[in-house]
Amino acid sequence: MIYGVHCKDTVQTHMAILTNRLDETLMYQRLLSISDPVKFTFEGQTLTAQAGESVAAALLASNVESFRDTPVSHSLRSPFCMMGSCFDCLVEIDGQPNCQACMTEVRDGMEIYRQRGEA
């Protein structure tokens, strides 16, 4: 992964998350407020999740729109099945690429990045 590209994208992501937050409608809403918080980062931004949930659920509930881009056409993807079959939720967690976000429990201090293309 090239560091320069990474930095630029981090800024963009940050913007995307912020604009999203200002929108009236969010993609996803939590029905319950977080009672047992876990703090982690996505593309450098700190987010909070409920302990015990998956990385995919944590990111979706934070209204992160895309998780990865594809190896072939670099189009954006986000979780499709949430049950481990489609691999559209792949992210990089603590330096390890190819992690299925929907099958990984979110933990305090996790550093998560989008997966870009083939890792």
Binding site: Y28, R30, A57, L60, F67
Partner: peptide, 25 residues
């Protein structure tokens, strides 16, 4: 069907069961 924001209905139900999270619209 590959656009971000498109999921299976099953995925939405999993979000509900596992995280009490729903899609807004």
């Amino acid at each position: 069907w590959t656009l971000p924001g498109v999921t299976t209905a099953g995925a939405i139900q999993i979000l509900l069961k596992a995280s009490a999270t729903v899609a807004d619209d």
